[in-house]
Design a protein around this nucleic acid. Sequence first.
DNA 1: AACGGTGTTGGATT
DNA 2: TAATCCAACACCGT
Length: 275
Amino acid sequence: MPELPEVETVRQGLRKLVLNKRIEKIVLLYPKIVIGDSSLFKNTLEGLTIKEIGRRGKYLLFNFTEGITMVSHLRMEGKYFVRNSDDEIEKHTHVIFKFTDKKELRYNDVRKFGRMELVRTDDVFNLKSLKKLGPEPIASDFSTLDFATKLKKKNKMIKPALLDQTLVAGLGNIYVDEVLWMSKINPQTIASHLKEEQIKTLHDAIILELAKAVSAGGTTIRSYTNAFENSGAFQFELNVYGKTGELCARCHTPIKKIVVAQRGTHFCPNCQKVE
DNA sequence: AACGGTGTTGGATT
DNA sequence: TAATCCAACACCGT
């Protein structure tokens, strides 16, 4: 499911739903979702209150009282929603955060790939997974110059380079295909071969596209919903992802799908020529 | 009905 | 060090 726009939309919904709620009890139906000692996870969180919910890249950061943070990654299909404590437990619910007001936050994940982990709030950005993240894709953090310098050193195709989160945080398979189409860059172009002008275009497309997707509440392909269980609307703005065989909006050439770095990759063979 | 593909990440391998 | 491959899991469409 979720790339940066979806995670951000989930974050905004969760803030409205669970901020300042106190956890009375944690129920772990599938403890493997938790990284580290699951009893410690449970014992630590019981009694704490959710004070803020942040985001870094595709990671949600739940800040609790007592200087504790839960780092949560939804991976492919993780989702959070709120239920009453007497509502039936759905099939793929794995973690339940029961609040003192008889509401509960439930973590649901069909594929069980998502993970959550407790760390001291002061140590969050020392986590290996967060430490490696590149800048947030907003103009104030994401410098064109720095992006260009790093790309010139990458002896790797641009698509996997953008997916690995170190050049810029938050892009996944959908938005990478979209921003490359926007920038007329072939996904198999070696990053170091990109021209100055293309890098600038790509940089700006990343910022703009992700901002637009956040405004639209993210992209729902099959299962993504936000914390209120609403779908996003950005799927209607996509130009290449899932459009195999449909005509390119710019030049009317059929969109092609290939595999690049083990990921399905959609592009226009006419607009996005290899450099 | 079996098989390949699915929005992600990180550990193993080279 | 860095690039590449693949497992973790369940479901869906062909």
